[in-house]
């Protein structure tokens, strides 16, 4: 399989999941457009390093995670490549606000906890897959995930108590 075919196959199979991963983590959906272009531009430049099989998907998530971290540090540039995608994402239905309290609870946790919890709940990844994305041992992920879940449970309970009528 040529590099072109390999990249096209990766893009075709995983672009929607990677876009979803980014959209769920940025403040405005259209911000994900530049990140999406950046993730796949990096993947294309490094297509020699793309692992075979399902590891290719996890490799893309690993790139997306780093691109997102750069974005949070304010170092993402707006590029022409993403213009059309930005427009398209701007037209996506917005957040109805229903998930806002849960996301507020999530914001009270550490970045590491949030990452583990959202990869589990939103990307439906197993601890083994998360371990590959984060470069950790599966056993470490299991332990940290269990603690992160307990912390989220505590924060959600606290929110529920605060919202309950006296």
């Amino acid at each position: 399989m040529s590099h072109e075919q390999r990249f096209e196959a990766l893009f075709k199979q995983h672009s929607t999941s990677i876009l979803g991963y980014l959209v769920r983590r940025v403040d405005a959906a259209e911000d994900a457009a530049d990140l999406m272009a950046e993730v796949f531009a990096i993947a294309w430049r490094r297509i020699h390093d793309a692992p075979p099989g399902d590891e290719g998907r996890l490799w893309l998530y690993g790139i997306a995670r780093k691109v997102l971290a750069n974005h949070r540090r304010g170092s993402t540039r707006r590029g022409r490549l993403a213009d059309r995608l930005r427009e398209q994402l701007r037209a996506q239905p917005g957040d109805d606000g229903g998930g806002q309290p849960v996301r507020a609870a999530l914001e009270r946790l550490s970045v590491a906890d949030r990452e583990l919890l959202t990869l589990t709940a939103w990307e439906q990844m197993s601890p083994g897959e998360i371990a590959v994305v984060l470069g950790l041992e599966p056993a470490t992920v299991r332990t940290r995930l269990s603690r992160a879940r307990a912390r989220l449970r505590a924060v959600l309970d606290e929110h529920a108590r605060a919202a309950a009528p006296c």
Binding site: A121, W122, R149, L156
Partner: peptide, 24 residues
């Protein structure tokens, strides 16, 4: 009332801003 273990992931799932199926 305290949430049961396991509920927190279901609650978190409902807070996802976009669904891959909708995007697809």
């Amino acid at each position: 009332m305290k949430s049961a273990p396991g509920d927190e992931l279901s609650v978190l799932r409902t807070a996802a801003r976009a669904d891959d199926r909708d995007l697809a």
